[in-house]
Amino acid sequence: MSKLNIIILMALVTYIPRMLPMVFLKNMRLAPWLNRFLRFIPYASLGALIFPGALFSVNPPAAAAGGIIVSAVMGLMGRSLIAVFASGVAAVYILLLII
Protein backbone atom coordinates (compact mmCIF):
# COMPACT_ATOMS: atom_id res chain seq x y z
CA MET A 1 0.00 0.00 0.00
CA SER A 2 1.47 3.36 -0.99
CA LYS A 3 1.93 6.16 1.51
CA LEU A 4 -0.65 8.29 -0.22
CA ASN A 5 -3.21 5.49 0.03
CA ILE A 6 -2.47 5.06 3.72
CA ILE A 7 -2.90 8.79 4.34
CA ILE A 8 -6.20 8.81 2.42
CA LEU A 9 -7.45 5.87 4.51
CA MET A 10 -6.32 7.65 7.66
CA ALA A 11 -8.33 10.67 6.61
CA LEU A 12 -11.42 8.50 6.02
CA VAL A 13 -11.29 6.68 9.35
CA THR A 14 -10.78 10.05 11.04
CA TYR A 15 -13.59 11.84 9.26
CA ILE A 16 -16.37 9.24 8.93
CA PRO A 17 -16.89 8.52 12.66
CA ARG A 18 -16.94 12.28 13.28
CA MET A 19 -19.40 13.00 10.55
CA LEU A 20 -22.02 10.23 10.99
CA PRO A 21 -23.42 11.31 14.40
CA MET A 22 -23.27 14.97 13.43
CA VAL A 23 -25.45 14.32 10.37
CA PHE A 24 -27.83 11.61 11.57
CA LEU A 25 -28.26 12.13 15.31
CA LYS A 26 -29.25 15.77 14.98
CA ASN A 27 -33.03 15.53 14.84
CA MET A 28 -33.47 12.06 16.30
CA ARG A 29 -35.73 11.77 19.34
CA LEU A 30 -33.92 10.05 22.18
CA ALA A 31 -34.86 8.85 25.66
CA PRO A 32 -34.25 11.53 28.34
CA TRP A 33 -31.44 9.59 29.98
CA LEU A 34 -29.69 9.26 26.64
CA ASN A 35 -30.02 12.99 26.10
CA ARG A 36 -28.44 13.62 29.48
CA PHE A 37 -25.70 11.12 28.66
CA LEU A 38 -24.87 13.05 25.49
CA ARG A 39 -25.04 16.39 27.29
CA PHE A 40 -22.54 15.29 29.94
CA ILE A 41 -20.01 13.90 27.44
CA PRO A 42 -18.06 17.19 27.27
CA TYR A 43 -17.29 17.09 30.99
CA ALA A 44 -16.43 13.40 31.01
CA SER A 45 -14.20 13.61 27.93
CA LEU A 46 -12.32 16.63 29.27
CA GLY A 47 -11.81 14.74 32.52
CA ALA A 48 -10.38 11.75 30.67
CA LEU A 49 -8.18 13.98 28.48
CA ILE A 50 -6.76 15.80 31.50
CA PHE A 51 -6.07 12.81 33.73
CA PRO A 52 -3.65 11.09 33.60
CA GLY A 53 -2.35 12.72 30.38
CA ALA A 54 -1.55 16.06 32.03
CA LEU A 55 0.53 14.40 34.73
CA PHE A 56 2.87 12.82 32.19
CA SER A 57 3.00 15.76 29.76
CA VAL A 58 6.28 16.87 31.33
CA ASN A 59 9.04 15.04 33.12
CA PRO A 60 9.21 14.86 36.16
CA PRO A 61 5.45 14.49 36.82
CA ALA A 62 5.85 16.56 40.01
CA ALA A 63 6.34 19.67 37.86
CA ALA A 64 3.18 18.80 35.93
CA ALA A 65 1.29 18.28 39.19
CA GLY A 66 2.26 21.80 40.27
CA GLY A 67 1.01 23.17 36.96
CA ILE A 68 -2.27 21.26 37.34
CA ILE A 69 -2.84 22.71 40.82
CA VAL A 70 -2.02 26.28 39.74
CA SER A 71 -4.29 26.07 36.65
CA ALA A 72 -7.13 24.51 38.66
CA VAL A 73 -6.93 27.22 41.34
CA MET A 74 -6.88 29.96 38.67
CA GLY A 75 -9.91 28.31 37.06
CA LEU A 76 -11.72 28.15 40.40
CA MET A 77 -11.03 31.84 40.91
CA GLY A 78 -12.82 32.49 37.65
CA ARG A 79 -9.80 33.85 35.79
CA SER A 80 -9.78 34.05 31.99
CA LEU A 81 -8.60 31.15 29.84
CA ILE A 82 -5.45 33.08 28.88
CA ALA A 83 -4.60 33.67 32.55
CA VAL A 84 -5.12 29.97 33.37
CA PHE A 85 -2.91 28.99 30.42
CA ALA A 86 -0.14 31.49 31.21
CA SER A 87 0.01 30.76 34.93
CA GLY A 88 -0.05 26.98 34.38
CA VAL A 89 2.80 27.11 31.85
CA ALA A 90 4.77 29.55 34.03
CA ALA A 91 4.36 27.30 37.07
CA VAL A 92 5.61 24.26 35.14
CA TYR A 93 8.55 26.29 33.76
CA ILE A 94 9.61 27.47 37.22
CA LEU A 95 9.22 24.00 38.74
CA LEU A 96 11.27 22.44 35.94
CA LEU A 97 14.06 24.93 36.64
CA ILE A 98 13.98 24.19 40.37
CA ILE A 99 13.62 20.41 40.32
Partner: peptide, 15 residues
Amino acid sequence: SLTFGLYALFIGLLV
Protein backbone atom coordinates in the same frame (compact mmCIF):
# COMPACT_ATOMS: atom_id res chain seq x y z
CA SER B 1 6.40 23.70 29.76
CA LEU B 2 4.52 24.70 26.62
CA THR B 3 3.52 21.03 26.16
CA PHE B 4 1.63 21.46 29.38
CA GLY B 5 -0.21 24.45 27.89
CA LEU B 6 -2.83 22.28 26.16
CA TYR B 7 -3.75 20.66 29.46
CA ALA B 8 -3.87 24.05 31.18
CA LEU B 9 -6.44 25.05 28.55
CA PHE B 10 -8.50 21.90 29.17
CA ILE B 11 -8.39 22.59 32.92
CA GLY B 12 -9.35 26.22 32.33
CA LEU B 13 -12.39 25.08 30.35
CA LEU B 14 -13.50 22.32 32.72
CA VAL B 15 -13.02 23.79 36.20
